[in-house]
């Protein structure tokens, strides 16, 4: 696992990464299974999103606070703000094939 830009955040970051990776690996395969109907998929996504919050929410908050403080100290805040304004990237890029196009 990669380190944080701030050594004091690295232990929290590693804990958070482990938590996410474990959750993610359990999430992915069932989410790929295309047989489910739209309501079933939505129910699954909602349930797993809630599970992620329950499992990793606490460590996420601790890690996030640590990183935000470090970014401020290093004066990186304005760079991030500017990058977000120039490219919000809130939605996935468009123009891709849909699953029905694929074999």
């Amino acid at each position: 696992m990669a380190d944080s830009l701030s050594p004091e955040c690295t232990p929290l970051k590693h804990k958070y990464d482990s938590c996410f990776n474990e959750w993610f690996e359990g999430y992915l395969e069932p989410a790929i299974a295309a047989s489910a109907t739209q309501p079933e998929r939505e129910a699954y996504s909602r349930q797993k999103a809630a599970e992620f919050e329950t499992k990793c929410g606490k460590i996420w908050k601790e890690y996030k606070t640590c990183v935000h403080d470090s970014l401020k100290q290093k004066g990186l805040d304005p760079l991030i703000q500017q990058a977000r304004e120039e490219n919000p990237l809130k939605e996935p890029p468009a123009g891709q094939s849909t699953p029905s196009d694929r074999v």
């Binding site: 955040c9 996410f20 939505e42």
Partner: peptide, 22 residues
């Protein structure tokens, strides 16, 4: 040399995970 997650969300409707990292 370093990676940090600044933001991460799971869209409960689409199941899409968005992650912002530095």
């Amino acid at each position: 040399i370093s990676i940090d997650v600044l933001d991460r969300s799971v869209d409960p409707k689409t199941g899409i995970i968005r992650t912002e990292r530095i």
